[in-house]
Amino acid sequence: MLSRVAERLYWTARYLERAENTARLVKVYSNLMLDLPNGVGLNWHQLVDISGAQAFFDSHYRTSGKRNVIRFMLSDTDNQGSLLTSLTMARENIRTTRDLVPSEGWEHVNELYLFARKELTGKMLLKDRYEFLSEVVMRTQQITGLLAGTMSHGAAYQFIRVGRNLERADMTTRILDVGSATLIAPGVQLERLENRLWTYVLRSLSAHQMYRQYVRRRVQASQVLAFLLQDTDFPRAVAHTLGEIASCLEHKLPHSDEPLRAALRLQRLVAEANVNKLHAEGLHEFIDQLQLEFGNLHQQISTTWFSLELDEAV
């Protein structure tokens, strides 16, 4: 399999997953802003912080009001991480590798892109935005399911799987960041707010129901953290996505030593995290650390399969 093709499939999956999770993130944040009382210190700029593109935002926008932040997150095509950019890139990558993907896969990605572009050019009411974001989540899920159900699970599919899970791990930690206490202004009475905050976090990851089924406790910060970081069975939990990646690397792809090491290191890091302590302090820093490691894992994948080091290889 060509390196270029492998790389494009990997990025197709990453961008699709990024689009889905960006939709989830904006949805949960919009709800939070509606629901939490004024004066708790939550503001729209924090959403920009979570997305990790503060510098870009600050140089392109004068104020960080709701409208600007929403535009930045959803329709700004100069923003590398916006929903529309993600869908554009997913489409661009899949259309140059169409021979390897079932044709419905390409068609659905293409239609989703066209749909988003159309919806995002007009003015969008809050109610419409909610429906739009839900639709994006649903359609990306559909595409993921379609590929899983109709594409041979050979090397091509494994790159899709690795890309999807790595992006999902990264985005889940960003959404967890919403719940990190750093968002809340110091001195605010947290107790009552916190439950509501973490319930939103769970809901945004479609995890509320599974949490109740498997954790069997009412929503509690450290339990939610443990579930979303360390649960190996819930598909959007970080530990699960890392397990998926490790199993692809170990069993399905050639010469995977270095990426596998990076994935296993991440697995240890997550498994050994002390959620009780993290909840009290340092969650934001821990998430930063994880994201650096995700970057490192990507680097290993890229070096191993995408950008062949020619001098060594010959």
């Binding site: 399999m1 390196s3 492998a6 790159f159 010959v314």
Partner: peptide, 22 residues
């Protein structure tokens, strides 16, 4: 393949860049 997928090495042979190497 596209041009960027291929490379000519010192042995004057053409190779394509794949996930298994050249």
């Amino acid at each position: 393949v596209e041009g960027s997928d291929l490379v000519v090495c010192d042995d004057n042979c053409v190779y394509m860049k794949t996930i298994d190497g050249l």
